[in-house]
Amino acid sequence: MQVLRKLLFPISLIYGLIVYLRNRLYDLGIFSSKSFSTKTICVGNLSVGGTGKTPMIELLVKSLSDTYKVAILSRGYKRKSEGFLLSTSSTSVEDMGDEPFQMKSKFPKVHVAVDANRRNGITELEQKIKPDVILLDDAFQHRKVKPDFTILLTAYGELYMEDWYLPTGNLRDTKGEAKRANIIVVTKCPSDISKLERDSIRVKINPKSHQKVLFSYLAYNKELKGAEASLDSLKGKMVTLVTGIANPAPLEKFLLSEGLKFEHLKFKDHHFFTAEELEVLKEKECILTTEKDYVRLKDKITKLHYIEVKHEFLEDGMELLNTDLQQFMIKVS
């Protein structure tokens, strides 16, 4: 696979040029980027693959929803509906897509909508909901909308500065577009990453004067949900780990560090399970999955546990983020 990606290097040069020219057309105003009266916060990345966007959106919801009326707008990747859709109690995961459905399930009082056309989605939310702030999930490259505040995520070990354009690498946008971010978060760090290494990464990122660089790691909840149990209670059982996420490696590493033995059935990101696959899973003694996968499996499989994950910031990162968010909300209002 790596050899094939290297052979496709000429295509990555063409892709990189196209992305660069597109961004220049937006910068020059030849392509229009629209601002909205409602405050917007964008969470995104420059690369394909998992950087922890959904846990970051959830963190923002927790930080803002006690004070402000919050709405979330996502594309709803691989959903089976079209156009704008505002989630209700009867909306299915197939209609919304797994990540928006997960967020609506976790935060029922927050308005969650999907629309591939972000401009239209924001307009619909303004008309129907009138939120104080709209969180734009995975919208960094959608330059038809000009967000008011932007959080750029990049995963430790897969930093955008050290990556290359698709299909040779994983970059889907130009590295220089990081300049548009207010905050850059290096996610999925080791929890014990040294100050020396953090400083080295900051030098590589070379942030602009208006930018903060923060560091976070993934914290897994040992108290499992779904079929509630503790992680320790699964030790000694025949556990099947089922994942349909972009990068399950951090979860695998965590479970192994906790002494859990398991077989791992890996599926593609946002995978909707076939009838045949579900029959295989029903024969398993004990299934552990992610929260995102759980919303696609919960009504179809019993003996199903899921493990929650969230961002924990190193240093005073959480305080810095909250301070910037509160200043932004006051300043724009």
Rank of each mutant, 00 (worst) to 15 (best):
S35R: 13
T67A: 10
F101H: 12
K144W: 01
S81M: 05
I287V: 13
V239L: 02
T168I: 01
F254K: 04
R79Q: 09
I129E: 15
E223R: 11
V133N: 02
M318V: 13
K109I: 08
S209H: 05
N182H: 11
V145K: 02
M103W: 08
L234G: 01
V280A: 10
K261Y: 04
Y156K: 05
T290S: 01
L8E: 09
S194C: 06
D148F: 05
P131L: 08
L125D: 06
L297D: 07
S33M: 05
K225M: 08
T54A: 10
H142C: 03
I245S: 14
H270F: 11
E58R: 11
V309P: 02
G16C: 01
I14L: 15
N182I: 02
P207L: 11
A219R: 02
V203W: 04
Y77F: 13
V110I: 15
G52I: 14
D95L: 08
D199I: 01
K253Y: 04
P108L: 06
F273C: 12
T38V: 15
Y294C: 06
F84D: 09
G49I: 04
K253A: 15
T88Y: 04
R119P: 02
D192A: 10
P147W: 04
R5Q: 12
K284L: 03
L21K: 11
N206V: 04
G29K: 08
V145T: 03
L320N: 12
K144M: 07
H210Y: 11
S37I: 05
Y15N: 05
D173R: 03
E308D: 15
G157P: 02
K188C: 00
D192G: 11
R22N: 12
E252R: 00
S230R: 10
E277K: 04
F84Y: 15
E126G: 13
S92G: 13
D27G: 05
E58Y: 07
T154Q: 03
S87Q: 07
A219S: 14
D199Y: 00
I193F: 03
K253H: 09
G44L: 10
C42A: 15
K34E: 11
K34Y: 13
I205L: 12
D232V: 10
E124C: 15
D269K: 14
C189P: 08
E285K: 06
E223W: 05
L278V: 12
N170A: 09
H210W: 12
Q102W: 07
S81D: 11
S33G: 14
Y217R: 00
K6E: 12
V19P: 07
Q2K: 08
T289K: 01
F215S: 06
